[in-house]
Amino acid sequence: MSSVESTRATGTYPVKRGLAEMLKGGVIMDVINPEQAKIAEDAGACAVMALERVPADIRRDGGVSRMSDPEMIDGIQAVVSIPVMAKARIGHFVEAQILEALGVDFIDESEVLTPADETHHIDKYQFTVPFVCGATNLGEALRRISEGACMIRSKGEAGTGNIVEAVRHLRSILGDIRKVTQADSAELFEWAKRLQAPLPLVQEIAETGALPVPLFCAGGIATPADAALAMQLGAQAVFVGSGIFKSDDPSPRAKAIVEATTHFRDAHILAKVSRGLGAPMTGIGMDDHTKFAERGW
């Protein structure tokens, strides 16, 4: 059979964004060892996030939180066949280079780790591996996209088991997108200024009514109902961090959250999968602790 001359381009924007597209409708689960990674894959996770401590423990332990040990990431890659993600500190492009060399499938430039740069995020165009970044509002989302992020997630407030901040961020991002679509062409200049975001991206959103990359929810999901809430608000997939492995019985809860994310509009299925899951992670209120979401510029 004749064939076009063999062409092959890796690390292009469509190839990087393509993986984000494939993760839609799925659940990405935080795992800290190969055993948890297997439980996540068995439960139907569409990817795992390999990290040394779940956010609830990072919050409890304090200190500086960094990229995971490569050996630990290797160990997780060896036992699962689904995509493996890992976190780099904000602005720490060398951690990102190392994660790329390890062959991770997606890098989360994450506020859950201690920031390495208080002004700059990573120039994500320099990498073959795609990046996801957190955002609390539309301006932040568009700045991360302009740096090359291929997926945006709400920051929420990781490690709290409290969905309130994720809801705030999703409502802010999606609410402002709805407003931008109502603006006339002159008002878009003002929107770009107010959002501190590149004008062409603001104009694109006015045209399409959506972010140019997938929008996922992260930070505080602890129950199937939380996952379905994020999806009904307009998230296209969910990250679950401490919510699974800090609960009483991780495996059934993980399976239930996967089903709830698929059937997010079907209250009968949500009622069925929410039964008898044991205690969720305890969770904490929003009053007196560090907000990870304030990290990022």
């Binding site: 059979m1 076009v4 190839v15 993986l19 066949s81 062959g103 499938d105 997606f106 795609p130």
Partner: peptide, 17 residues
């Protein structure tokens, strides 16, 4: 995953004769 991990993902022209 016969073509490898995400860093090996690619785009290419193909003929559909």
């Amino acid at each position: 995953n016969g073509y490898g991990r995400q860093i090996d993902s690619f785009e290419a022209d193909i003929d559909v004769p």
